[in-house]
Computed example of a mutant assay.
Amino acid sequence: MRTLTRMAAALAASAVAITLAACSDTSSASGDAASSGSGDAGSSDLSFTVADSVDLTGSDTYDAAKSAGTLRVGVKEDQPGLGYLDAITGERTGFDVDIARWIAAELGFSEDQIEFQTIPSANREQALVNGDIDYYVGTYSITDKRKEQIGFAGPYFITGQGLLVAADNTDITSEDDLAGKTVCSATGSTPLQNIQENFPDTKTVPFDTYSQCVDALKDGSVDAVTTDQAILIGYAAQEPDALKVVGEPFTEEKYGVGVPKDDAALRHFINKVFTDGGDTWQKVFDADLGSSGITVQQPAVDDYE
């Protein structure tokens, strides 16, 4: 089934003229360059040099994508600053989206060869197992349980449960200041459960989505919003005059790139991209999340066998 799907994609791709960018084995990001992709594949003002000579042997995923002329990438679309789809323009933006675009360029795929697919969190492993996508980038925490089904490159970002407050709030600087406060998080989420179980003097308000929590924070209905700090940084970057992230993460989540479990070659390749591309990683972070005011460092990868 995967071969048939790839053949169909290859036939469709053959009708499209592909123009590769500058010839280089390493990619670069420029905050001054305009994105050259289509509306679906485009992102911020970052541009990545597409490699014209890729040394990747033993990856069935890469071989199939190269044959088809299309790279299928799973992402999210509802997280500002990380993975967001503008319903009007069709433009995808965010840190995770740009990480995905950077990897694609290093694999030798231009913007118009990327096929982004929105995959819900609950369906990520199955999409990789089924061969529906080639890799996934979208606040995907590395866990031993998930490694039973798929592989992970990275981590490319380490975060944890954090706190978002109003920009003029001086009462809450960390989780130590939550006693007597009202905190919002998503219904049934791990961050909400953590507050309820470990912060008994803190009132919690659940909503279906984090955007509803942010609206409640802005109208003064709650004192703080809590979830992964990376997600909160995205909201703060979107409205830096109204919102800010305070304190340090008080749990730990390591975000990785999900790949097919048996494709160690692809996993090692992506890990090398991260290890050798510190300057590019920093440019991506600065472009997408830098306005939040948070300073972070790129983590070392876990290039397991």
Rank of each mutant, 00 (worst) to 15 (best):
A122I: 03
A122S: 10
A122D: 03
A122F: 02
N123S: 14
N123K: 11
N123E: 14
N123D: 13
N123A: 14
N123F: 00
R124C: 03
E125L: 10
E125N: 10
E125C: 02
Q126L: 11
Q126D: 13
A127C: 09
A127W: 10
A127M: 03
A127E: 04
A127K: 11
A127D: 08
L128H: 05
L128D: 06
L128Q: 09
V129R: 07
V129E: 12
V129A: 08
N130H: 10
N130K: 13
N130T: 14
N130F: 04
G131N: 06
G131S: 10
D132T: 09
D132F: 07
D132G: 06
D132N: 11
D132E: 14
I133Y: 15
I133P: 10
I133R: 12
D134T: 14
D134V: 07
D134K: 14
Y135I: 07
Y135C: 05
Y135W: 13
Y135S: 06
Y136T: 00
Y136K: 07
Y136G: 01
V137A: 11
V137I: 11
V137R: 07
V137Y: 04
G138W: 00
G138R: 04
G138T: 02
T139K: 08
Y140A: 08
Y140C: 04
Y140R: 01
Y140Q: 12
Y140T: 02
S141L: 05
S141V: 13
S141Y: 05
S141K: 04
S141C: 04
S141G: 03
S141Q: 06
S141A: 11
S141P: 09
I142W: 00
I142T: 08
I142G: 07
I142Q: 09
I142H: 01
T143D: 06
T143C: 03
D144T: 05
D144E: 12
D144N: 07
D144W: 08
K145W: 01
K145Y: 00
K145A: 08
R146P: 03
R146L: 01
R146S: 04
R146I: 02
K147G: 10
K147N: 13
K147V: 11
E148P: 00
E148S: 06
E148G: 05
E148F: 05
E148T: 09
Q149F: 09
Q149K: 14
Q149D: 15
I150G: 05
I150L: 07
I150D: 09
G151T: 11
G151D: 14
G151C: 09
F152Q: 13
A153D: 11
A153F: 02
A153W: 00
G154T: 03
P155H: 01
P155F: 05
P155L: 04
P155V: 02
Y156H: 10
Y156W: 12
Y156M: 07
Y156T: 05
F157M: 15
F157P: 09
F157I: 08
F157Q: 15
F157G: 10
F157Y: 13
F157S: 15
I158N: 15
I158P: 12
I158A: 14
G160E: 08
G160W: 12
Q161L: 12
Q161W: 13
G162W: 15
G162S: 12
G162C: 12
G162V: 06
